[in-house]
Design a protein around this nucleic acid. Structure first.
Lengths: 360, 360
DNA sequence: ATGAAAGCGCTAACAG
DNA sequence: CTGTTAGCGCTTTCAT
């Protein structure tokens, strides 16, 4: 057994020590570090020298934070357990854009796991008690979202991504309803009448399988709801809707196997995400079905999917990194103390090689 | 133009207000929330009722943090720009294990971008001034790492992953040198003599291409260094070492194209990561080379790589999620005030279908 | 340009 | 079990 060695748990020297060593007042020493006020160059030098002498590496953030009432932290509640969110390029690319923008404003990102399965508590403890100036909610379920409710109670200004615009939060979203309508119309134009739908999760129970009418009425998550509505907008009444527990290739593959191995299989599968769609394509190949000869497949997101090569998925592209940057800008507005107007970003139909005329 | 509406920037009510409303002292009110001390059930109820009445959602974290000297935050410096780190399952799976363990201890993870290219400052501002009780450094370059130096200056206890054990930091690593030696020996046993190596980045300049002896002597990042040494341990003198800017499929593919299209191409390529190796396999296929008939390819990490199907990569598996959990445990030790002994986790050679006898 | 004073909101000793 | 007393380390008026 090694002897346990103590480690120093925090710095000892304070601004007061440095000020004393430099022969100035604490307030002057503070200015030397923050630069927020008039100070003689010589004085600053003296303070900095004293700091170096004492191994003082700058004002303690905890003191600064309490005094200024700001933590410099943005809590980001991701849409799922981290393990799954990180596997979804949609979340990752957005997060990347967001972290970049926030970094420029000297804000840090506190990662908060989102709603997992119902066996877990609905709200992570960090949501309840971590220090944060603003929160960002990816994939909020709607105005009754328990996480959103908790943040409201705390009075934490919040940016909701893919939610519903509401007076007391900032919102960033995309034209997904119109986008899905476009790609659905594209399938109709190709002559498809038997169209199945592979949907994102309905709620935190994260069920899996073809749903009945009752379940279909229970969709809680707004992103899923809107994308279903977009499909209806194009006049498509799907022959089946398959609910998935997460936007991942394996769930798309499972959906594909279920939908395409039955007797009167659909001629087209409209998926609410690219990852789900690529799973469906893989399942179709597995089953020996030609894409798009036997079945057309379309997705949503506009991801780069090299493993589908030589196929290119028909999809609706959304500007992921820019969406993240836009969220960052909304965060900045909230910090300034005003609610930015809701942002809705455009999407674009991109016809690839996975959709074609309905088979005769 | 919409009228800008003000948003409330922080809660107004304090513990003192609640205490007054409940007719108790602040310290008693504090106990009602923290539970850290004896308090009559009736009193607690009264305080909580008063809090609900006043819409008080709990003690302000900033006050608590300053007073207790703890932020409840663990700063995690990832090994690269987030955009790239998130695309690497090695980082993501470890992060997932880490966040899970830390979550149980009610600690939050502050994401800090790691060393990108030299045009950027070597140390993210968050490293210098964000509040954190402990820092975790993924992929530290060695004892001269500027990020580690900054954390030392601040006196932030640190866990270094894949670094060198040093007295004033906690270390978690794997037996990568031995692992690489094993897989290198495996290639030698198969009769390979012309072996090329595709390496992880050497330093933050993140060069790309076959390196000369001079450059090979400049490897700064310890993980790369150790994996090179493991190869030498097995007696392999590579015919070429290719430096990559990041552990990503596309860089592996570029390396593969460069190494396999020349005249006297190697019969085996030993890669320091699975993502790099899978790129090499794809490049070989592109060039019409049979794997392993014409060229054997081996990796390191033990990732699931479905897009290589039906091939299964020969690799050395490391326990990623458990490594993350182990890092979490080291964080806990540091918070208790002691340095845990260095942790070294085992790895395991897994022979797949991408390595075979050297061609005659 | 510098200094003095006043807290930010909370918890932890300690005394009762 | 509850109240009193002291700050945690810093920034920010406000004088000077």
């Amino acid at each position: 057994m090694l002897p346990t060695r103590r480690c120093p748990l925090s710095q000892r020297t304070t601004l007061a020590d440095v000020a004393a060593a430099a022969g100035v007042s604490v307030s002057t020493a503070s200015l030397a570090f923050s630069g927020a006020g008039p100070i003689a160059a010589a004085t600053r030098e003296r303070v900095l020298a004293a700091a170096a002498e004492l191994d003082y590496s700058g004002p303690n953030p905890l003191g600064r934070q309490l005094r200024s009432g700001r933590s410099g932290i943005v809590g980001v509640v991701v849409g799922d357990a981290l393990r799954r969110s990180f596997r979804d390029p949609v979340s990752v690319q957005m997060l990347d854009g967001l972290v970049g923008t926030l970094g420029e404003m000297n804000l840090g990102v506190l990662l908060i796991p989102g709603p997992t399965d119902p066996s877990e508590p609905p709200v992570d403890p960090l949501v309840l008690s971590a220090a944060m100036d603003v929160a960002v909610l990816l994939w909020a379920s709607g105005s009754a979202d328990p996480v959103l409710a908790a943040l409201r109670r705390r009075g934490v200004p919040t940016v909701v991504v893919e939610g519903i615009p509401e007076p007391d939060v900032a919102t960033v979203g995309i034209e997904d309803r119109q986008g899905i309508a476009q790609v659905a119309q594209h399938l109709v134009d190709l002559g498809h009448r038997r169209i199945a739908c592979v949907a994102l999760p309905f709620d935190r129970t994260r069920g899996e399988g073809v749903v009945d009418a009752e379940r279909l009425a229970q969709v809680q998550w707004q992103i899923t709801r809107r994308r279903l509505d977009g499909m209806y907008d194009a006049g498509v009444q799907p022959v089946a809707v398959y609910e998935t527990p997460a936007s991942l290739v394996e769930h798309g593959a499972a959906a594909g196997r279920a939908l395409l191995s039955g007797a009167d299989r659909p001629t087209a599968v409209l998926c609410q995400s690219d990852l789900l769609a690529s799973g469906v394509v893989l399942a179709a190949r597995e089953l020996g079905l030609a894409v798009p000869g036997d079945v057309s497949v379309a997705g949503f997101d506009g991801l780069d999917l090299p493993w589908l090569a030589p196929d290119v998925l028909t999809t609706v592209a959304q500007p992921l990194a820019e969406k993240g940057a836009e969220v960052g800008r909304s965060v900045a507005r909230l910090l300034e103390g005003t609610y930015p107007p809701p942002v809705v970003m455009p999407v674009e139909l991109r016809v690839g090689t996975t959709t074609g005329p309905a088979p005769a």
